[in-house]
Design a protein around this nucleic acid. Structure first.
Lengths: 340, 340
DNA sequence: CGCCTGAATCGTAGCGCTACGATTTTAAGC
DNA sequence: GCTTAAAATCGTAGCGCTACGATTCAGGCG
């Protein structure tokens, strides 16, 4: 909380607008909320008073009085990741145009931090809540069970969920990549991942990949990149991997940035892609189409997620949604280019 | 605003906690705000009542009553850009640990959208406001002049500013790159930029670059990339540029993603970097150290900006800052690698 | 011309909390 | 045991707005 008190900072109230416009405060309030219910004449008086005074409504007072808010809380593991930030951007655009304000929180892939953030967001009496994935702490779950605000779990699919779900199956992504590699005749593979311990969804993609490869009699070597180094540490890791496992003929990466690191290492070592080694990413980031060679990857519906989350949220705020409208698998697209 | 009314969603109030704990509501409030001012015995009664009821304070009611809020508004051009999102992440971390809640807005490089967002944030009676850069609409300026909340303008430096300023000079960045290229003997240059029309800071970097190059008797060809295509359209543009201006021996890019696109095009055309062409980016994104060849770029103080903005904001909330503490040029570091 | 109806406007009572002065409790000192 | 100051607790009066029922106003009609 602010230490320095800033009261009396001559903020204009609705009452002052009313006085200047020669109407009652209730009329001003009504004008602001449902302009077509006041006469054109009053409307005009009120608007000009507002303009003249530079009146800004006090959201907190309004929210308290109506015990309702235009806040929607959104929790992502990190906004630093273009997957989530594009979803956020789209979500923001759609929700703002419907009059809502996003409260964004970074869970840092940590369920206890998520809990803390949810507590803080819930104290705003939000109209809706959007969280990433299905993994929540026990007390988060009970916190969420008790609240009545609509909840969307996004960026994943395949589990029951708390209320609404918009996403896709990461396990299926892994399988998709695996099948494509198998088709191109590769059986000895590796999966290189950042953030493997913390990111359930990366682990799901790995699991899907491994399941498919092993079902076809192939092998999968798992390589974890430590920390946040997306493309720098990758070089060394790739070198070690290829040295200790010279039989490997395909590498799937947990995301395109990792794949970029692998790709540059291959360029350095003159390893032919896809001749000697097949390479695939995840994310279909912008650069993937211009790498040398262009990178085969998976396009997750980043912006579509945002759009549909907004749509569902808005709909559920209007009226109760049928059960079968509450779950949306947006699927995923394999973008085949030249690296596999 | 929410259409469906969710009142009566049996939310627990402070009064109910008080009743269960056998104290007055004021004591509960005091306990929550300044726990050390209630006796340990009461504290314990109250806390257990809170836990038992699952009480969550109502932020709006608190904010209204104290006419003060723990909200800090932050406006960035786009959260989709790792420059800003890393600043945001750092800012969030520091500010949250001091008890503040960020309200993030996307201006989309549009001053009128910025104005709209500022209006909306101001209606929350925020404790502070952070905006990106110096470019604001006329009415934003008057809106901001009237308010008493501390304001930080970040990610730029060199203009008077409204209140506090934390950033660095983009013009200086351009000069830095130019000087390095000139030192390596290049005089015929090009500047390739995304988002040139909308992004003042990219234009400043260009201006700095051009000023230095031209002062040394060199030439600068400006290439603008349309829209959001960071690395894909870049290939074609580079090809055209190199064809129509075969004399060009150095390319500076508005950011590392653009440089990546140029680099891949050069790989395709077998253009030797830095032999035939020098290349530099901006941002020092993670991948730049592993490209082939590693990319010379500029490291902007992304996270430091967040950290110092938080520090200044917090300090100005405690007490008045001296004038000379209000402006901070964080500078910039040229990261020399192999591409120039 | 009064009556009725619907539209426009208004007044009042909170929303759940905090600020702050009033009151009660505690403990120290003699 | 009494006084007194300090510490702990409490009661009241809003914060600025919205909800909603009460009131006023227009106009149309018998």
């Amino acid at each position: 909380m602010a230490k320095r008190q800033r009261r009396g900072s001559q903020r204009i109230t609705m009452g002052e607008v009313a006085r200047l416009a020669n109407v009652s405060p209730s009329t001003v309030s009504l004008y602001l909320r449902r302009p077509d219910e006041v006469s054109p004449q009053r409307a005009e008086q009120i608007q000009s008073a507002i303009d003249r005074l530079g009146y800004l409504p006090n959201t907190m007072a309004g929210g308290l009085a109506s015990s309702r808010s235009n806040v929607i809380g959104v929790l992502v593991p990190t906004i630093t990741n273009s997957f989530f930030s594009e979803t956020l951007e789209t979500l923001e655009r759609h929700l703002r145009s419907a009059g809502y304000q996003l409260l964004i929180g970074n869970t840092e892939f940590d369920v206890s931090r998520e809990e803390e953030l949810i507590r803080s967001i819930l104290s705003w009496n939000p109209a809706g809540l959007v969280v990433t994935g299905f993994l929540h702490s026990r007390s988060t779950l009970s916190l969420l069970a008790r609240t009545r605000t609509p909840i969307v779990e996004m960026w994943d699919f395949g589990q029951p969920g708390l209320d609404m779900v918009v996403g896709f199956s990461h396990h299926a992504c892994g399988r998709l990549i695996a099948e494509h590699m198998l088709t191109s005749g590769r059986r000895r593979t590796a999966f290189v991942s950042t953030n493997f311990q913390r990111d359930v969804r990366a682990r799901d993609r790995y699991a899907g990949f491994r399941d498919s490869v092993e079902a076809a009699g192939g092998t999968v070597e798992l390589c974890e990149l430590s920390g946040r180094s997306d493309a720098s540490e990758t070089g060394k890791l790739t070198r070690d991997l290829l040295e200790s496992h010279p039989e490997i003929e395909a590498i799937a990466c947990s995301n395109d940035m990792v794949a970029l690191g692998v790709l540059f290492e291959c360029q350095r070592q003159n390893i032919d892609i896809p001749g000697r080694l097949a390479l695939a990413g995840f994310g279909n980031l912008d650069f993937t189409r211009s790498t040398v060679p262009p990178l085969t990857t998976i396009e997750p519906p980043r912006r579509e997620i945002g759009q549909h989350v907004a749509r569902l949220l808005l709909a559920s705020l209007e009226d109760e949604l049928a059960e079968d409208e509450k779950r949306l698998d947006l699927g995923v697209r394999l973008v085949v280019r030249e690296s596999v």
